[in-house]
Design a binder for these strands. Structure first.
Length: 585
DNA sequence: ATCGTAGGCGCC
DNA sequence: AAAGGGCGCCTACGAT
């Protein structure tokens, strides 16, 4: 190991002992790595592989690494540096303030109460304006007016080792201010800090998921696709012929003489009307009721399924998103709403028919686990409703609720889910009154969230995530009056807020679980390859499968302990060791 | 031509 | 039983 690296490790070890709990890092592969404690002491390392340096320091002193954003996590994931403790400033910013968009200059401005309208514009926009930093030192990342210098934030931070070190130091300053803000946020600061740690680790996990991908048995995927839409067409013309053949199978049932585009919902609706099926839209669940009315309906529904494979999960999808036997997509740790993870390339909406193609590599297994009845258990935890907390001790929570309400299990389940989604009509309405009677704390919490949402207010999850209420003007106006429209917008906001409280909290618990699994299973060379809201898939050598299965269960207990405000809520996971995703018991 | 929106559907 | 919350991705279509 080169001398400067050894020196920096020694230096950092001393600082860590002296009380520097946070360690800033900024790195680029071309330039090196910048490190900082955050009280003015920096170190710039120009030689050596940045990721190797980080790995060596991580092993030596195990600090909580602080970085600005994903651009630092990505190269660490590529290099396989399994950093455990981190603080991602932009991820924490999204946690505290909500929304999906977040930028380094914006987060900095917010932290320092700087007016957002004086945010420095990118590019050349400012050339003709009076420069707020006229004559100032361009090597200082902060302008005299307090904003970050755009030349730095747009990439100049990586220009030299010294700048990397200054940038790392600034990240620590930002993280410290974020921690201070938590003290006055209105939520429990300990709890929010804990969420910040988990969310930051989840963002790093997302960088790793993006790099690793999901193992795919490509020949099996091709077989499934061929079953649905035929063999891979050699050219565009052949693809066109195949598509026409699929269309004709449906149109054979249609009234003759009609020129119908099956991909045009208006055409389809008109066609259905001509065979006596009158529907407001042509969604599958609606057409299901009319299956017996005419053979056209069944043919259309079958066509739609094949069309889904052909267009979204067909040969093009395979060649574009599967490389080296892995389905690769972009992962992000929190969406713009309640904070669930998102993934592209179909990773989060792979049709069940394709799941046999998701297969462990040879000599490996998947260890798969999903959380059972996660939403009502989360509702019990965040509301502290004693009756609902008691219901979580059962494997089947809904059965207990049904017994208490004196209704059928299905009715109870629909009612509980409906209460969390905002459904208020139908047969669940009567059971809803039963819920309000038997679980007043839980239902009261949901109703107060809905009221906040209806009034246009933000809701805050138990972990401290702010979910910003939308101010959408584009809700469809069918020509009725403004009052009616305002009422519909308010109702939609109420449903959104009601759900966000639960969906957001469930996402928090899930991420704590996932990053705990990641931490506890790295020594087995196990890799999380899929996160699906309440389901985890870990890829590992077959010899370690049973051990990882145990870890998934233990990690859930640990995660619940760290996350749940309510000691007595029981969370359950269904775990299995499998070769293919479709092998689930 | 390029963009945003809506209908539709996959998953949770 | 009813059709509610989130996301990504496809197509067609109208506005720019």
């Amino acid at each position: 190991m080169p001398d400067p690296v050894q020196r920096s490790i020694t230096w950092l070890a001393e600082q860590a002992v002296a009380g520097g709990e946070l360690l800033g890092v900024a790195l680029t592969s071309g330039v090196g790595v910048g490190l900082a404690i955050g009280d003015g002491r920096r170190i710039a390392v120009a030689t050596g592989d940045p990721a190797a340096i980080v790995a060596a320091i991580d092993a030596a002193i195990g600090p909580r690494w602080v970085w600005w954003h994903r651009e630092t996590a990505d190269p660490l994931a590529v290099a396989g540096v399994g950093v455990q403790r981190c603080w991602d400033v932009l991820t924490v910013h999204r946690l505290l303030h909500g929304g999906w968009r977040a930028s380094v200059p914006g987060a900095w401005a917010r932290l320092h109460d700087l007016p957002l309208d004086s945010l420095p514009a990118m590019g050349q926009l400012g050339l003709l304006d009076v420069h707020p930093d006229e004559g100032a030192d361009p090597d200082d990342p902060v302008r005299p007016d307090g904003h970050l210098r755009p030349e730095w934030t747009s990439g100049g931070w990586a220009a030299s080792p010294d700048r990397l070190a200054a940038w790392a130091e600034l990240a620590v300053v930002a993280a410290r201010r974020q921690a201070e803000q938590m003290l006055t946020s209105g939520s429990d600061p300990q709890r929010v800090r804990s969420t910040a740690h988990a969310e930051s680790a989840a963002e790093l996990l997302c960088a790793e998921l993006t790099v690793h991908g999901l193992p795919i048995d490509v020949p099996e995927a091709e077989r499934i696709i061929a079953d649905a839409v035929g063999p891979r067409p050699p050219d565009e013309a052949a693809a066109d012929v195949a598509r026409r053949a699929r269309d004709d199978a449906v149109l054979a049932h249609a009234p003759i003489g009609a020129r119908i585009d099956l991909r045009n919902p208006n055409d389809v609706r008109a066609m259905l009307r001509r065979v006596g099926v009158d529907v407001p839209d042509t969604r599958a669940w609606r057409l299901e009721h009319h299956r017996d009315a005419h053979p056209l309906v069944g043919a259309l529904l079958t066509w739609r399924k094949a069309e889904r494979i052909a267009t979204t999960y067909g040969y093009r999808w395979l060649t574009e998103h599967v490389r080296d036997g892995r389905l690769r997509g972009e992962w992000s740790s929190s969406d713009g709403a309640a904070g669930r993870m998102t993934a592209s390339s179909g990773l989060h909406n792979l049709p069940a028919e394709l799941r046999p193609a998701v297969a462990a590599e040879s000599g490996h297994v998947f260890v798969r686990a999903d959380l059972g009845q996660i939403e009502p258990r989360v509702l019990a935890a965040v509301s502290g409703d004693p009756a609902l907390v008691a219901a979580t001790t059962a494997d089947d929570l809904y059965q207990g609720v049904a017994t208490r309400l004196g209704v059928a299990r299905d009715v109870a389940k629909v009612a509980v889910l409906g209460a969390m989604y905002g459904a208020t009509t139908g047969t669940s309405a009567q059971a809803l009154r039963g819920l309000e009677r038997e679980y007043p704390m839980a239902m009261g919490l949901l109703e107060s969230a809905a009221a906040t949402g209806r009034a246009g207010g933000d809701v805050v999850t138990i972990g401290g995530r702010r979910v910003r209420m939308w101010t959408d003007e584009t809700v469809d106006d069918t020509g009725r009056g403004d009052i009616d429209r305002a009422r519909r917008v308010a109702a939609a906001r109420g449903r959104f807020a009601r759900n966000a409280l639960i969906q957001g909290a469930a996402a928090e618990l899930f991420k704590v679980w996932a990053v705990t699994v990641r931490a506890r299973a790295t020594h087995l060379d196990a890799r999380i390859v899929l996160c699906l809201h309440d389901e985890l898939i870990v890829h590992v050598d077959e010899s370690a499968g049973p051990r990882v299965a145990d870890i998934l269960v233990e990690a859930l207990g640990e995660a619940a302990h760290r996350w749940s405000p309510e000691r007595d809520v029981r969370f359950v996971a269904d775990v299995s060791v499998i070769r293919r995703w479709s092998d689930v018991a």
